[in-house]
Design a binder for these strands. Structure first.
Length: 135
DNA sequence: GCCAACGTTGGC
DNA sequence: GCCAACGTTGGC
């Protein structure tokens, strides 16, 4: 089982929108590094839903329910998407500020490369952020 | 194949 | 609104 963090601007698509829909295609990713991570995703993997620009925080956990399929918003046939479903809303959001200030998360790929919209997490990092959401 | 110019993302 | 990071484009 692998763990991930995926970014979306909440005024475009928020965690609440995903809960409303029940299942959604995570499309529009046009970055090769992010695409590689999405290709590595397996059914049952868990990912934080992170709100970029507005909120700037992880707000919920989602589950990968369908592995790489062609991105329906892409006409070139080059890009893939995955399908996700809500898993659990965090008791309280974990802000970027909190993550940056935490030594246990210093090696997080997302912190080191802030523009990467899909980033992997170690199981330890994942559990740590879950714990922070309950603190 | 190098590199400058330019566009986009995302935090502040 | 600004700026840093970084990806892409295009001239040479």
């Amino acid at each position: 089982m692998n763990y991930w963090l995926m970014k979306s601007e909440p005024d475009v698509f928020s965690y609440a929108d995903l809960v409303k829909k029940g299942k959604a295609e995570w499309d529009g990713v046009r970055n090769h590094a992010a695409q590689l991570h999405m290709k590595a995703m397996r059914k049952g993997d868990l990912a934080f839903f992170y709100h970029s620009n507005i909120g700037v925080e992880a707000v919920g956990i989602m589950e990968i329910v369908e592995e790489a399929t062609p991105d329906s918003t892409d006409e070139t046939g080059k890009w893939i998407a995955v399908h996700v479903a809500p898993h659990k809303k965090l008791d309280r959001p974990v802000t970027l500020k909190t993550m940056k200030a935490d030594p246990a998360l210093a090696d997080m790929v997302m912190l080191r490369q802030s523009r990467l919209s899909v980033a992997p997490l170690t199981p330890q990092q994942f559990e740590h952020i879950v714990a922070l959401s309950k603190a």
